[in-house]
Design a protein around this nucleic acid. Structure first.
Length: 426
DNA sequence: TCTGGGGTCCTAGGACCC
DNA sequence: TCTGGGGTCCTAGGACCC
């Protein structure tokens, strides 16, 4: 059996660890630039605030219902996430887990045959709840896809499962769950596939199992075949071990649109430098760097332009200086005057370990010279705080709108050295 | 006025090879 | 008038996830 441990309303729950007065009140957390709702308390959900709701459309509802609104504090969420993961992992043998996202952890209960899993999961949950003040749900089932569903069931039926644990351990329980579950709520069915399924009369998860495998294969590809096996209780997906990332992206939407070339160039350079720092943190060098820029897709009347381009580096690099230079040269090539830009980003990919760099015979390799400088900068920044040391030209302006930091959070930042995240970021 | 920021995997189709 | 049949590798784009 596998389990999925999932933190309930994670970002909101993190806010409540700083201020218990928020308990029982409607609370939402907003994305960067205070743009979208990315986490909602149960009370906020009950008021009809959807996930991803643009904040400006809900200001009145927030005010009318005294909803507490917070800007995202990713340092805090990462810190809490690591606390949860550490605590949960301590209940399992080495490597019998997969950190799936900032608030989700898969557990592998292989070898727990003689354990009462319900009782054991309760123990895990209670410890996290009492010591960290973070509520979680645990779904247990024979496959990862069914764990997702078991977890979903816990969250939907809190009165029925007040302990936050559901064990899906029989044919009948699985059948019942699949009969109840809308096809769009199956892990791996998104908006497009969901619509297509409905067109073909597949409304519930169980309907999918009635379709011939050839049809599944044609409509959904190989993933679909895996999915139906997982739904039948035949494991197709193993736990992924923590592995270095295969690509790294830094991108932002700008609170105010950017119309000068210099300002946008500066942002791109900053993004490239952040990419380089993340690369060095996982001891990788990249072979490819890409840059994209785009106007506001919600303001088409201002004119639309969107472009991006990748180049292969002469030598794999993790140098801030090198990556900033190439990012800028791409930017020069794709920039078009006369538009107001809303969003831009830099992505690096095609990694090699930094001790296995294959140096081009024909290009001079300057990366080696940069490495000592870079490492020194990284060290100073980790000691004294992000961006205390910067390359000349890197923007020092804070371009985020982050209006609603609380005094408790200022206090929290003062008292904690925040570790880096090493999992997928929400 | 105001609409996030990351990631992964798969597929189709083109380039190229013999 | 006639115009192979495979393979492999790479890339862009689309789908999904949180």
């Amino acid at each position: 059996m596998y389990a999925l441990l999932d933190c309930n309303n994670f970002f909101v729950s993190c806010e409540r660890t700083l201020d218990p007065d928020l308990d029982g009140k409607p609370v939402v957390v907003l994305s960067n630039n205070d743009g979208c709702v990315v986490s909602r308390s149960n009370e906020a959900k009950a008021l009809g605030v959807p996930m991803g709701a643009p904040a400006f459309k809900y200001r009145e509802l927030f005010a009318a219902n005294d909803v507490k609104v917070f800007s995202a504090k990713f340092e805090l969420y990462n810190f809490r996430s690591q606390q949860v993961m550490e605590m949960a992992k301590s209940f399992l043998p080495d490597d019998a887990y997969e950190v799936y996202s900032i608030d989700e952890l898969f557990l592998d209960f292989h070898g727990f045959k003689y354990f009462d899993l319900e009782e054991y999961c309760n123990k895990i949950r209670k410890k996290i709840d009492t010591e960290l003040k973070l509520p979680t749900s645990i779904g247990v089932a024979p496959t990862k896809t069914l764990c997702k569903i078991a977890n979903h069931i816990v969250k939907k039926n809190t009165e029925q499962y007040p302990d936050g644990v559901y064990i899906m351990d029989s044919r009948e329980k699985i059948e019942e769950a699949l009969n109840d579950l809308d096809i769009g709520d199956v892990w791996g069915i998104g908006r497009k596939l969901g619509a297509k399924m409905v067109d073909h009369g597949v409304y519930k998860a169980s309907h999918l199992l009635l379709k011939p495998e050839m049809w599944i294969r044609k409509v959904m590809g190989i993933q679909g075949v895996r999915m139906i096996n997982e739904l039948r209780g035949i494991p197709q997906l193993e736990l992924d071990k923590a592995s270095p990332k295969r690509s790294i992206m830094v991108s932002r939407s700008f609170m105010q649109m950017i119309s000068t070339k210099e300002e946008l160039a500066e942002r791109i350079e900053t993004f490239a430098i952040y990419c380089a720092e993340k690369l060095r943190k996982q001891n990788s060098c990249c072979k490819v760097i890409s840059v994209f820029i785009q106007t506001n897709r919600f303001r088409k009347e201002l004119g639309e332009y969107k472009n991006g381009f990748s180049i292969i580096l002469p030598n794999p690099s993790s140098s801030s200086i090198v990556l900033a230079k190439y990012a800028n040269s791409i930017f020069e090539a794709i920039y078009k005057h006369g538009f107001q830009y809303k969003r831009a980003g830099v992505m690096v990919s095609d990694f090699v370990p930094d001790n296995e760099r294959q140096i081009s015979l024909f290009e001079k390799d300057i990366d080696d010279k940069h490495i000592p400088i870079m490492k020194a900068i990284d060290k100073l920044n980790s000691k004294y705080g992000k961006d205390k040391i910067r390359l000349g030209g890197m923007s020092g302006k804070n371009t985020y709108g982050r209006a609603t930091l609380s005094p408790e959070y200022e206090e929290f930042l003062k008292n904690n050295i925040l570790p880096e995240a090493n999992y997928r970021f929400q």
